[in-house]
């Protein structure tokens, strides 16, 4: 049952790679593979996807015309599902949404069953979100078609991390090098429960950046640093001085580690990206948030809408990387599914 930590797989077992002569050279490696996470994915593969995202942003292609993509969300999501839907449509694919919040569908076995049933309907790829860590892998293990993880519990959310990397490359005028060497990125919030933080820790580090996790001890335990290969700090002010970008995460005060917080104002006083903290950052340093945002808690409204913010660029980049992800894993074999 164990598998290497590499969260993508080149080609699933028992399946021929791709019909001869119809593969696009840029998507050779990803074709037929799952995109389950960023951890363990080599830099060249991340850059390949990100380069494709940039290319398709300039010149859209109906590369998936006649193909069908299924979005299967077992957990509430408006933005990510919409983003995948728009991305699939931009590639010319049809999208069928089979989302269900029914709690039984969140359980593992029915997740595998659901994936099998959807595959049998003839889809080219399945985009899945579950509240269970490892849920996307369970779906991927159950089917032969590629699976894209749109978030599995507190584990991974790879397309969000790729979107953040694309937005950073744009904002830093790196012209598609995706080389973040020398950059320091602070991620602040509930790291323990954040799949965005885990995916970003892996991809940003692989692309050369130094990542620092900052949060209250209940949300940013020291052990997390060793697990993810990042530094952990509980002092936002000290870390912001040297940061090239700060990414604030949504705080869920009502549950999880949030229940251990005194109040939103108490959190904001220590860990909010306030105007004063933004003012103290280096010139040109960026402010990010994957959304949805509690304005005035993890970030002041003036900061979110201010000159340092690339929050909206992150959203746009999200569609671009999802176009690339779908095209890469499905392969632009126009026609038969």
């Amino acid at each position: 049952m164990t598998r290497s930590p590499d969260t993508t797989r080149a080609t699933k077992a028992g399946r021929s790679p791709a019909p001869d002569g119809v593969r696009t050279p840029t998507t050779n490696v990803w074709h037929g593979a799952d995109l389950l996470g960023t951890r363990g994915v080599p830099a060249e593969r991340l850059r390949e996807l990100l380069t494709l995202a940039r290319a398709r942003r300039e010149s859209p292609a109906k590369s998936l015309a006649g193909r069908t993509v299924a979005t299967v969300f077992f957990e509430d999501s408006t933005r990510t599902r919409s983003s995948f839907t728009i991305a699939a449509q931009r590639c010319g694919a049809d999208v069928v949404d089979l989302s269900s919040k029914a709690s039984s569908a969140n359980k593992g076995e029915s997740l595998a069953d659901t994936a099998r049933v959807i595959e049998a309907m003839g889809v080219a790829a399945i985009v899945v979100r579950t509240s269970r860590a490892g849920g996307a892998k369970m779906a991927a293990d159950a089917v032969a078609c590629p699976v894209i993880n749109a978030g599995d519990g507190a584990h991974e959310h790879p397309t969000q991390a790729l979107a953040d990397a694309l937005a950073l490359d744009d904002a830093w005028n790196l012209a598609g090098s995706f080389d973040f060497g020398g950059k320091r990125i602070v991620i602040v919030g509930d790291l323990s429960h954040s799949r965005v933080a885990r995916s970003n820790a892996a991809s940003l580090t692989t692309l050369g950046a130094e990542v620092v996790f900052v949060g209250p001890p209940a949300m940013a335990p020291r052990s997390l640093g060793g697990a993810l290969g990042v530094r952990v700090s509980h002092d936002l002010d000290a870390e912001l001085a040297e940061a090239d970008a700060v990414m604030a995460l949504r705080i869920q005060l009502e549950r999880g580690a949030g229940a251990m917080l005194a109040s939103s104002r108490d959190y904001r006083s220590a860990y909010g990206v306030t105007q004063a903290r933004a003012d103290a950052m280096k010139p040109g340093a960026l402010v990010m948030h994957p959304g949805p945002m509690n304005r005035g808690v993890e970030m002041d409204p003036a900061v979110a809408d201010g000159p340092r913010s690339i929050v909206i660029r992150q959203v746009a980049a999200g569609v671009a990387v999802r176009v690339a992800a779908l095209e890469a894993v499905i392969g632009s074999t126009a026609g038969n599914a």
Partner: peptide, 11 residues
Amino acid sequence: HAGSVSGALGL
């Protein structure tokens, strides 16, 4: 177990 593996797996 609460440790590096749970941290990496998000459990």
